[in-house]
Design a protein around this nucleic acid. Structure first.
Lengths: 145, 145
DNA sequence: TTAATAAAAGATAAATTTGTCCTTTATTTG
DNA sequence: CAAATAAAGGACAAATTTATCTTTTATTAA
Protein backbone atom coordinates (compact mmCIF):
# COMPACT_ATOMS: atom_id res chain seq x y z
CA UNK A 1 0.00 0.00 0.00
CA UNK A 2 1.72 3.14 -1.15
CA UNK A 3 0.66 6.39 0.36
CA UNK A 4 -0.84 7.69 -2.86
CA UNK A 5 -2.32 5.57 -5.67
CA UNK A 6 -0.14 4.76 -8.68
CA UNK A 7 -2.33 7.15 -10.63
CA UNK A 8 -1.46 10.03 -8.31
CA UNK A 9 2.20 9.06 -8.08
CA UNK A 10 2.61 9.04 -11.85
CA UNK A 11 0.57 12.21 -12.14
CA UNK A 12 2.69 14.15 -9.66
CA UNK A 13 5.93 13.01 -11.25
CA UNK A 14 4.68 13.73 -14.76
CA UNK A 15 3.33 17.17 -13.92
CA UNK A 16 6.58 18.14 -12.24
CA UNK A 17 8.51 16.92 -15.27
CA UNK A 18 6.24 18.84 -17.64
CA UNK A 19 6.61 21.92 -15.46
CA UNK A 20 10.38 21.76 -15.64
CA UNK A 21 10.31 21.37 -19.42
CA UNK A 22 7.74 24.15 -19.72
CA UNK A 23 10.01 26.52 -17.85
CA UNK A 24 12.64 25.65 -20.40
CA UNK A 25 10.15 26.70 -23.09
CA UNK A 26 9.58 23.16 -24.31
CA UNK A 27 6.53 21.06 -24.92
CA UNK A 28 6.94 17.39 -24.10
CA UNK A 29 5.52 14.25 -25.66
CA UNK A 30 4.16 11.33 -23.69
CA UNK A 31 7.01 9.07 -24.71
CA UNK A 32 9.60 11.42 -23.26
CA UNK A 33 7.64 11.99 -20.08
CA UNK A 34 7.03 8.30 -19.47
CA UNK A 35 10.72 7.53 -19.94
CA UNK A 36 11.81 10.26 -17.60
CA UNK A 37 9.43 9.46 -14.78
CA UNK A 38 9.49 5.70 -15.29
CA UNK A 39 5.81 5.04 -15.85
CA UNK A 40 3.84 2.90 -18.31
CA UNK A 41 3.38 5.09 -21.36
CA UNK A 42 -0.25 4.34 -22.20
CA UNK A 43 -1.41 4.44 -18.64
CA UNK A 44 0.22 7.83 -18.23
CA UNK A 45 -1.51 8.98 -21.43
CA UNK A 46 -4.86 8.33 -19.77
CA UNK A 47 -3.86 10.26 -16.70
CA UNK A 48 -2.63 13.25 -18.68
CA UNK A 49 -5.84 13.12 -20.69
CA UNK A 50 -7.80 13.68 -17.51
CA UNK A 51 -5.50 16.41 -16.28
CA UNK A 52 -5.75 18.05 -19.66
CA UNK A 53 -9.55 17.90 -19.62
CA UNK A 54 -9.47 19.67 -16.27
CA UNK A 55 -7.06 22.30 -17.56
CA UNK A 56 -4.26 21.30 -15.21
CA UNK A 57 -1.94 20.71 -18.11
CA UNK A 58 -2.30 22.08 -21.63
CA UNK A 59 -1.69 20.12 -24.80
CA UNK A 60 -1.26 20.57 -28.52
CA UNK A 61 -1.62 17.81 -31.07
CA UNK A 62 0.54 17.16 -34.09
CA UNK A 63 4.22 17.67 -34.87
CA UNK A 64 6.03 19.64 -32.19
CA UNK A 65 2.97 19.27 -30.07
CA UNK A 66 2.94 17.81 -26.60
CA UNK A 67 2.09 18.79 -23.06
CA UNK A 68 2.99 21.99 -21.29
CA UNK A 69 1.92 24.23 -18.44
CA UNK A 70 1.52 27.99 -18.68
CA UNK A 71 2.57 30.59 -16.10
CA UNK A 72 -0.69 30.59 -14.10
CA UNK A 73 -0.67 26.80 -14.16
CA UNK A 74 2.79 26.73 -12.63
CA UNK A 75 1.45 28.68 -9.66
CA UNK A 76 -1.18 26.08 -8.81
CA UNK A 77 -0.63 23.80 -5.81
CA UNK A 78 0.26 20.11 -6.08
CA UNK A 79 -3.00 19.45 -4.25
CA UNK A 80 -4.89 20.28 -7.44
CA UNK A 81 -3.41 17.21 -9.10
CA UNK A 82 -4.79 14.91 -6.43
CA UNK A 83 -8.15 16.63 -6.38
CA UNK A 84 -8.48 16.54 -10.16
CA UNK A 85 -7.92 12.77 -10.19
CA UNK A 86 -9.58 11.53 -7.03
CA UNK A 87 -11.57 14.30 -5.43
CA UNK A 88 -10.80 15.52 -1.95
CA UNK A 89 -11.40 12.46 0.20
CA UNK A 90 -7.74 12.50 1.18
CA UNK A 91 -8.18 15.96 2.65
CA UNK A 92 -11.46 15.31 4.39
CA UNK A 93 -12.01 11.58 5.02
CA UNK A 94 -11.82 9.70 8.32
CA UNK A 95 -8.65 7.66 8.84
CA UNK A 96 -10.65 4.64 9.84
CA UNK A 97 -13.10 4.99 6.99
CA UNK A 98 -16.10 6.03 9.05
CA UNK A 99 -18.50 8.21 7.11
CA UNK A 100 -20.01 9.99 10.09
CA UNK A 101 -16.76 10.58 11.91
CA UNK A 102 -16.64 14.24 12.94
CA UNK A 103 -15.85 16.55 15.82
CA UNK A 104 -19.10 15.56 17.49
CA UNK A 105 -18.83 11.91 16.61
CA UNK A 106 -15.12 11.15 16.43
CA UNK A 107 -13.42 7.83 15.73
CA UNK A 108 -10.68 6.71 18.13
CA UNK A 109 -7.94 8.19 15.97
CA UNK A 110 -9.82 11.35 15.12
CA UNK A 111 -7.74 13.91 17.00
CA UNK A 112 -4.35 12.54 15.97
CA UNK A 113 -5.47 11.96 12.46
CA UNK A 114 -6.59 15.55 12.14
CA UNK A 115 -3.01 16.64 12.68
CA UNK A 116 -1.71 14.22 10.05
CA UNK A 117 -4.31 15.30 7.57
CA UNK A 118 -3.60 18.97 8.13
CA UNK A 119 0.06 18.34 7.54
CA UNK A 120 -0.63 16.55 4.27
CA UNK A 121 -3.05 19.24 3.19
CA UNK A 122 -0.62 22.03 3.93
CA UNK A 123 2.25 20.18 2.24
CA UNK A 124 0.24 19.77 -0.95
CA UNK A 125 -1.19 23.29 -0.93
CA UNK A 126 2.00 25.12 -0.17
CA UNK A 127 4.02 23.25 -2.79
CA UNK A 128 3.41 24.63 -6.26
CA UNK A 129 3.62 22.67 -9.47
CA UNK A 130 6.23 25.04 -10.85
CA UNK A 131 8.60 25.32 -7.93
CA UNK A 132 10.99 22.66 -9.18
CA UNK A 133 13.32 23.49 -12.02
CA UNK A 134 16.12 21.96 -14.02
CA UNK A 135 18.68 22.72 -11.35
CA UNK A 136 16.69 20.68 -8.93
CA UNK A 137 16.56 17.75 -11.32
CA UNK A 138 20.25 18.10 -12.15
CA UNK A 139 21.00 18.16 -8.47
CA UNK A 140 19.90 15.53 -6.07
CA UNK A 141 16.25 15.45 -7.01
CA UNK A 142 14.98 12.53 -9.00
CA UNK A 143 11.73 11.47 -10.61
CA UNK A 144 12.44 8.18 -12.26
CA UNK A 145 13.57 5.45 -9.93
CA UNK B 1 -8.89 6.75 -2.24
CA UNK B 2 -9.10 6.30 1.48
CA UNK B 3 -6.04 6.92 3.52
CA UNK B 4 -5.73 3.29 4.59
CA UNK B 5 -6.95 0.27 2.63
CA UNK B 6 -10.32 -1.24 3.50
CA UNK B 7 -8.41 -4.15 4.96
CA UNK B 8 -6.60 -1.87 7.39
CA UNK B 9 -9.69 0.18 8.18
CA UNK B 10 -11.71 -2.90 9.08
CA UNK B 11 -8.76 -4.36 10.97
CA UNK B 12 -8.26 -1.29 13.13
CA UNK B 13 -11.95 -1.00 13.93
CA UNK B 14 -12.25 -4.72 14.66
CA UNK B 15 -9.19 -4.85 16.89
CA UNK B 16 -10.37 -1.86 18.88
CA UNK B 17 -13.77 -3.49 19.29
CA UNK B 18 -12.22 -6.78 20.38
CA UNK B 19 -9.98 -4.87 22.81
CA UNK B 20 -12.95 -3.19 24.43
CA UNK B 21 -14.79 -6.49 24.79
CA UNK B 22 -11.66 -8.18 26.09
CA UNK B 23 -11.34 -5.59 28.82
CA UNK B 24 -14.87 -6.47 29.78
CA UNK B 25 -13.71 -10.08 30.06
CA UNK B 26 -15.58 -11.21 26.97
CA UNK B 27 -14.60 -13.11 23.87
CA UNK B 28 -16.35 -11.97 20.70
CA UNK B 29 -17.56 -13.84 17.64
CA UNK B 30 -17.08 -12.61 14.10
CA UNK B 31 -20.78 -11.96 13.63
CA UNK B 32 -20.90 -9.59 16.58
CA UNK B 33 -17.73 -7.80 15.55
CA UNK B 34 -18.81 -7.34 11.95
CA UNK B 35 -22.13 -5.91 13.06
CA UNK B 36 -20.56 -3.50 15.48
CA UNK B 37 -17.91 -2.15 13.15
CA UNK B 38 -20.04 -2.34 10.00
CA UNK B 39 -17.87 -4.59 7.87
CA UNK B 40 -18.56 -7.56 5.58
CA UNK B 41 -18.53 -10.57 7.86
CA UNK B 42 -16.58 -13.05 5.73
CA UNK B 43 -14.06 -10.52 4.58
CA UNK B 44 -13.43 -9.57 8.18
CA UNK B 45 -13.01 -13.26 9.01
CA UNK B 46 -10.08 -13.42 6.58
CA UNK B 47 -8.49 -10.36 8.12
CA UNK B 48 -8.82 -11.69 11.66
CA UNK B 49 -7.41 -15.00 10.49
CA UNK B 50 -4.24 -13.21 9.46
CA UNK B 51 -4.05 -11.18 12.64
CA UNK B 52 -4.58 -14.35 14.60
CA UNK B 53 -1.80 -16.15 12.73
CA UNK B 54 0.51 -13.31 13.66
CA UNK B 55 -0.57 -13.41 17.27
CA UNK B 56 -2.08 -9.95 17.25
CA UNK B 57 -5.40 -11.31 18.35
CA UNK B 58 -6.06 -14.62 20.07
CA UNK B 59 -8.90 -16.97 19.26
CA UNK B 60 -10.67 -20.01 20.58
CA UNK B 61 -12.91 -22.29 18.54
CA UNK B 62 -16.19 -23.83 19.54
CA UNK B 63 -19.04 -22.76 21.82
CA UNK B 64 -18.25 -19.62 23.81
CA UNK B 65 -15.17 -19.24 21.69
CA UNK B 66 -14.28 -16.14 19.73
CA UNK B 67 -11.59 -13.53 19.50
CA UNK B 68 -9.90 -11.74 22.34
CA UNK B 69 -6.70 -9.92 23.24
CA UNK B 70 -4.67 -10.54 26.38
CA UNK B 71 -2.99 -7.95 28.59
CA UNK B 72 0.34 -7.80 26.74
CA UNK B 73 -1.58 -7.61 23.45
CA UNK B 74 -3.49 -4.58 24.67
CA UNK B 75 -0.20 -2.77 25.16
CA UNK B 76 0.86 -3.16 21.56
CA UNK B 77 0.70 -0.15 19.25
CA UNK B 78 -1.90 0.28 16.50
CA UNK B 79 1.02 0.32 14.08
CA UNK B 80 1.39 -3.43 14.56
CA UNK B 81 -1.97 -3.96 12.89
CA UNK B 82 -0.87 -2.17 9.74
CA UNK B 83 2.51 -3.88 9.71
CA UNK B 84 0.99 -7.31 10.19
CA UNK B 85 -1.29 -6.85 7.20
CA UNK B 86 0.75 -4.83 4.73
CA UNK B 87 4.33 -4.56 5.90
CA UNK B 88 5.92 -1.24 6.67
CA UNK B 89 5.84 0.52 3.32
CA UNK B 90 3.59 3.16 4.84
CA UNK B 91 6.27 4.00 7.38
CA UNK B 92 9.20 3.94 4.97
CA UNK B 93 8.07 4.45 1.37
CA UNK B 94 8.52 7.54 -0.81
CA UNK B 95 5.40 9.69 -1.24
CA UNK B 96 5.84 9.77 -4.97
CA UNK B 97 6.55 6.03 -5.22
CA UNK B 98 10.23 6.31 -6.09
CA UNK B 99 12.18 3.32 -4.90
CA UNK B 100 15.53 5.01 -4.61
CA UNK B 101 14.26 8.19 -2.99
CA UNK B 102 16.41 8.92 0.04
CA UNK B 103 18.27 11.66 1.81
CA UNK B 104 20.97 11.56 -0.85
CA UNK B 105 18.57 11.14 -3.70
CA UNK B 106 15.37 12.87 -2.65
CA UNK B 107 12.17 13.34 -4.62
CA UNK B 108 10.68 16.83 -4.80
CA UNK B 109 8.37 16.21 -1.86
CA UNK B 110 10.94 14.35 0.20
CA UNK B 111 11.49 16.84 3.01
CA UNK B 112 7.85 17.69 3.56
CA UNK B 113 6.78 14.14 3.22
CA UNK B 114 9.22 13.08 5.89
CA UNK B 115 7.35 15.22 8.37
CA UNK B 116 4.01 13.73 7.36
CA UNK B 117 5.34 10.22 7.61
CA UNK B 118 6.87 10.83 10.99
CA UNK B 119 3.56 12.15 12.23
CA UNK B 120 1.71 9.09 10.98
CA UNK B 121 4.32 6.79 12.43
CA UNK B 122 4.24 8.44 15.82
CA UNK B 123 0.43 8.49 15.84
CA UNK B 124 0.26 4.76 15.18
CA UNK B 125 3.06 3.87 17.59
CA UNK B 126 1.94 5.98 20.50
CA UNK B 127 -1.66 4.79 20.30
CA UNK B 128 -2.11 1.38 21.87
CA UNK B 129 -4.69 -1.19 20.91
CA UNK B 130 -6.07 -1.24 24.43
CA UNK B 131 -6.38 2.43 25.18
CA UNK B 132 -10.03 2.67 24.20
CA UNK B 133 -12.64 1.29 26.53
CA UNK B 134 -16.38 1.02 26.87
CA UNK B 135 -16.69 4.55 28.19
CA UNK B 136 -15.12 5.81 25.02
CA UNK B 137 -17.57 3.85 22.92
CA UNK B 138 -20.49 4.91 25.08
CA UNK B 139 -19.34 8.48 24.79
CA UNK B 140 -18.80 10.18 21.51
CA UNK B 141 -16.52 7.60 19.93
CA UNK B 142 -17.89 5.43 17.19
CA UNK B 143 -16.73 2.49 15.11
CA UNK B 144 -19.61 1.62 12.89
CA UNK B 145 -20.76 4.36 10.57
C1' DT C 1 -2.85 18.09 -50.27
C1' DT C 2 -0.42 14.37 -48.51
C1' DA C 3 2.43 12.25 -45.10
C1' DA C 4 3.95 12.39 -40.63
C1' DT C 5 3.29 13.49 -35.88
C1' DA C 6 1.09 13.48 -31.48
C1' DA C 7 -2.79 13.74 -28.35
C1' DA C 8 -7.77 12.04 -27.66
C1' DA C 9 -10.64 8.41 -27.20
C1' DG C 10 -12.38 3.77 -26.95
C1' DA C 11 -11.91 -1.14 -26.14
C1' DT C 12 -9.89 -4.72 -23.79
C1' DA C 13 -6.93 -7.23 -20.57
C1' DA C 14 -4.22 -8.19 -16.37
C1' DA C 15 -3.57 -7.62 -11.59
C1' DT C 16 -5.06 -6.51 -7.15
C1' DT C 17 -8.36 -5.64 -3.69
C1' DT C 18 -12.61 -6.56 -1.81
C1' DG C 19 -16.30 -9.61 -0.89
C1' DT C 20 -18.89 -14.31 -0.65
C1' DC C 21 -19.62 -19.12 0.01
C1' DC C 22 -18.63 -23.77 1.39
C1' DT C 23 -16.01 -27.35 3.81
C1' DT C 24 -12.97 -28.69 7.56
C1' DT C 25 -11.18 -28.65 12.18
C1' DA C 26 -11.36 -27.80 17.04
C1' DT C 27 -14.01 -27.28 21.20
C1' DT C 28 -17.85 -27.41 24.33
C1' DT C 29 -22.01 -29.07 26.25
C1' DG C 30 -25.71 -32.23 26.90
C1' DC D 1 -20.38 -40.02 22.15
C1' DA D 2 -23.42 -36.77 19.46
C1' DA D 3 -24.86 -32.32 18.36
C1' DA D 4 -23.98 -27.64 18.26
C1' DT D 5 -20.86 -23.83 17.97
C1' DA D 6 -17.26 -21.06 16.11
C1' DA D 7 -12.83 -20.25 13.92
C1' DA D 8 -9.64 -21.92 10.01
C1' DG D 9 -9.06 -22.63 5.46
C1' DG D 10 -9.91 -23.07 0.54
C1' DA D 11 -12.27 -21.84 -3.65
C1' DC D 12 -14.49 -18.56 -6.18
C1' DA D 13 -16.62 -14.04 -7.73
C1' DA D 14 -17.16 -9.05 -8.13
C1' DA D 15 -15.21 -4.62 -8.27
C1' DT D 16 -11.53 -1.54 -8.83
C1' DT D 17 -7.07 -0.23 -10.24
C1' DT D 18 -3.46 -0.62 -13.32
C1' DA D 19 -1.85 -1.51 -17.90
C1' DT D 20 -2.02 -2.27 -23.04
C1' DC D 21 -3.53 -1.83 -27.70
C1' DT D 22 -6.02 0.22 -31.57
C1' DT D 23 -8.50 3.80 -33.92
C1' DT D 24 -9.69 8.65 -34.47
C1' DT D 25 -8.87 13.55 -34.58
C1' DA D 26 -6.09 17.62 -34.91
C1' DT D 27 -1.97 19.87 -36.46
C1' DT D 28 2.25 20.61 -38.91
C1' DA D 29 5.33 20.65 -42.60
C1' DA D 30 6.98 19.13 -46.95
Amino acid sequence: MGFFSKTCEYAMRAVIYIAVRSQEGQRTGIREIAENINSPEHFLAKILQKLSQQGLVLSIKGPHGGFYIDAPGLQRPMADIITALEGNELFTGCGMGLSYCSENNPCPLHEDFKIVRNQITSMLYKTTIGEFNREHLNGKLTLNK
